[in-house]
Amino acid sequence: MKRELLKFLLFAIVVSVVPAFVSGGYLLNVLVFVGIFTMLAVALNLLLGFAGQISLGQAAFYGLGAYMSGVLTASHGMNPWVAMLIGAGAVGLLTFVLGFPILRLKGHSLAMATLGLGIIVYIFFNETVDVTGGPSGLSGIPNLTVGSFVFDSDLKNYYLIWGFALLAILLAVNLTNSRIGRALKAIHQSEVAARVLGVDVHLLKVEIFTISGVLSAIAGSLYAHTVMFISPTSFGFNVSIELLTMVIIGGLGSIYGSVLGAALLTLLPELLRTFQDYDIIVYGLLLILMTMFMPGGLVRGIPDAAVALYGKLKGGGADVER
């Protein structure tokens, strides 16, 4: 697995030098969000791309992380790092406990159950006004600090969040190239064969659901401390759909694909300001077109298309082996 490590190091270097080439704080600010969404997309991809289990409620875990951090620090003055840990732990416990009944479900029932869970949580964000501030949001969330060092600029936050995102990527890559990763892929490709070979399919699904939830919750905490203000709309159904689109665009089962998907869907609407509000149409189109014409996502689809094109130019349309 030397190649994986090399790929990761290369990517980490690119990430760490990017700020030197980015002029102006605005783009850097957007890149901070790319980092957060990278974590979220990787979290969903572990579940959907590897284990083949859909979740349309990821925004809930993201939101719970953000609100735990926000409420504990802004309203109760807790240390942000402790709050982040508590948030991740609470979401971990929730996803683990709920995971048992939820992951007994398959296909569309699973999709609907996670969707329902997401909406219930969203409604609670809106309705528990005393705690969350309701629809008008929660402000006064402090920045993260280490000693006297405060993460209060886009540049500092960039390194903070990408540090976390890189760690998430590394752990995910390690996981997918391990015994557990193979078992997850096995569940996806033939659940009955996986069981016959001794994979405790249900427990493993629950575990990966939990990991996915915890990772999303940490992303939520980071979001809260970076933006310093949170409101329910950042954690609604559309966000879950956006995450789904990111994973599909990048490619199911490809960790770096998720990075690409997160980057594209975060950068595009920002670069094309006219998209405002209408980005949801683009998501819809992308979901349909990608699933129909490039089911492997960009990461696999573009090389395949290039190879096919090359083959056509060269050999007059001969079949090209992948």
Partner: peptide
């Protein structure tokens, strides 16, 4: 699978 036992944490780290 049954002859090995690394869990998620051991595998990820």
């Amino acid at each position: 699978h049954t002859k090995s036992k690394s869990g998620i944490i051991a595998s990820a780290f």
